[in-house]
């Protein structure tokens, strides 16, 4: 059975979640590998969420937020950008390919962009193949 990746996506309630809904109302088709979790702001996404996702066997993590300057809470997305750069460096040491996580700014009107992003990321993850973190963790324990 062809490998169907599982990607955990953290979407901020005001911009990217609305964008995903817009992709829905405009009936844009994209690959069903995304598992969307809604948070109030991209600033709320802390590194533990991303590592927990990998620990639970996710093949990729997508973090979405509002465009810089559009954040409903003024600065949440700047904080998320800073944390993301840190996590990107950090997961290399844990042996996770950096392409498995991705940060994207999606505004409330960019439904089409969200659909393309989902397909694109699924494709990159398919090329990388399933993540082996979960298997390694089970061997260690």
């Amino acid at each position: 059975m062809e490998f169907e990746p599982k990607i955990v996506a953290f979407l901020c309630n005001w911009c990217s979640y609305t964008g995903a809904d817009l992709a829905g109302t405009s009936r844009m088709k994209y690959s069903p590998s995304l598992r969307i979790i809604r948070v109030m702001c991209s600033g709320r996404i802390c590194p533990t969420f991303i590592f927990k996702a990998f620990q639970e066997g996710a093949d990729g993590v997508l973090v979405c937020g509002c465009h810089p300057g559009d954040c409903h809470y003024n600065e949440g997305n700047y904080k998320c950008l800073r944390r993301f750069k840190l996590i990107e460096k950090y997961i290399r040491q844990m042996g996770i390919e950096p392409d498995r996580i991705r940060l994207a700014w999606i505004s409330a009107s960019e439904g089409k962009l969200f659909a393309e992003l989902a397909n694109e990321m699924t494709q990159t993850i398919k090329n990388l193949g399933p993540s082996t973190i979960k298997a390694q963790l089970e061997q260690m324990v």
């Binding site: 809904d21 829905g24 069903p32 969307i36």
Partner: peptide, 15 residues
């Protein structure tokens, strides 16, 4: 949300 983010955007019923 299984309408805007599932049934309206995926055609493959099983997935």
């Amino acid at each position: 949300n299984i309408r805007e983010q599932v049934s309206w955007v995926h055609d493959d019923r099983e997935k």
